[in-house]
Design a binder for these strands. Structure first.
Lengths: 183, 183
DNA sequence: CAGCAGCGCTTGCAACTGCTAGCACCCCCG
DNA sequence: CGGGGGTGCTAGCAGTTGCAAGCGCTGCTG
């Protein structure tokens, strides 16, 4: 029987080989939704629709929002109708005008991927100076993977305890073994 | 002892960096008189410097990164030198090529606010309720491994820097090792 | 009725982004 | 020496972004 330390070490080794594969898709998980030209048009329309929704909800005219945001109203109109694809700076300005977070619009625009997990943990890893940027990216990706697993495992076990184990085997090399060890 | 070629190369490098510094301050003082521009120029230079650093750390040529990122190498060169301000999409592509998260580059570019995290990554992971205990252990082990690697790379770089000081090779030779180990 | 204020949108343009073609330089080989 | 491979950068250009000037429409007022 393995000691806990050995078990962890083995996991780390397994994780290492997985991490190399995962690392290649790290920024892709963020950029993937921005990569393909076809979806760009849809995304422009999405953020435009979203802006219009928020503006309507706030009962603000296009000109009022444009003024508040510091952008031209014709341009804002074009953005809302998906005719133009605004830069991040413009999105941030519009967010300010709408009194919502810029990240919200970035996500709608497909610029920023929604992060799972605890923002504090994410921020801790991101700001840790003892890590290289690449290692940060790898840890964050793994962290998110685990959080998603934990979440789905929690939901699955809430539904049917018997089905919980097979469902946990949906993730790559790491989780299956983990699952086996606990069984 | 330096060869004549090395000496000339060193001189050219020195001249280059001087010119860049002077050019940078010129652009800054010009932009400063326009009001908003200064911070934009500074930010463009910041993300460009950061990209160059990460690229050097990864021991990747400009062309290789450009290829990996799917952007043109002249454009990447201009971005690194702060001559152009890339869109979020381009930043995400570059991040993918560098195998780091896009958010990192967004932060450097001033598009995304940096969230100050818990200074203690270990504590953050430990107290994260979105993780199972096993996953916490795995993440922490990996984290420690990475920190150790980073630390030894830093120490190696400190030694290498001392040895390399006469050659004045402020360029990478140091961190590539880190990159190799993680790759 | 005309005039005014508001609404959102059209049009043309300057500035910018990201690219291609090519340059200058370096190193190595036959 | 010339040729090949690599490096990073220059210059010109097409397409895009964000703007200003202006349009057409609606409702209200004297």
């Amino acid at each position: 029987m393995q000691t806990p330390g050995e078990f962890v070490r083995e996991q780390v080794t397994t994780v290492r080989s997985t991490v190399d594969r995962v690392a290649g898709s790290v920024a892709e998980s963020v950029a993937g939704s921005v990569g393909e030209k076809p979806s760009v048009a849809a995304v422009s329309s999405q953020v435009g629709d979203f802006i219009r929704e928020q503006r309507s909800a706030a009962r603000v005219s296009l000109r009022e929002l444009a003024r508040a945001a510091g952008v031209s109203n014709p341009y804002l109109s074009q953005v809302e109708r998906g005719l133009r694809k605004p830069s991040a700076e413009i999105l941030a300005s519009i967010a300010r005008g709408l009194k919502i977070s810029a990240e919200t619009l970035y996500e709608q625009a497909g610029i920023l991927d929604r992060r799972s997990g605890n923002p504090d943990t994410v921020a801790a890893i991101r700001s840790d100076e003892g890590l290289s940027e690449r290692h940060k990216a790898v840890l964050l990706e793994l962290y998110e993977t685990y959080v998603r697993e934990h979440r789905s495992a929690t939901e699955t076990s809430a539904r049917a305890a018997a089905a919980a184990r097979p469902a946990a085997a949906s993730q790559p090399a790491v989780q299956p073994r983990n699952s086996k060890e606990s069984a």
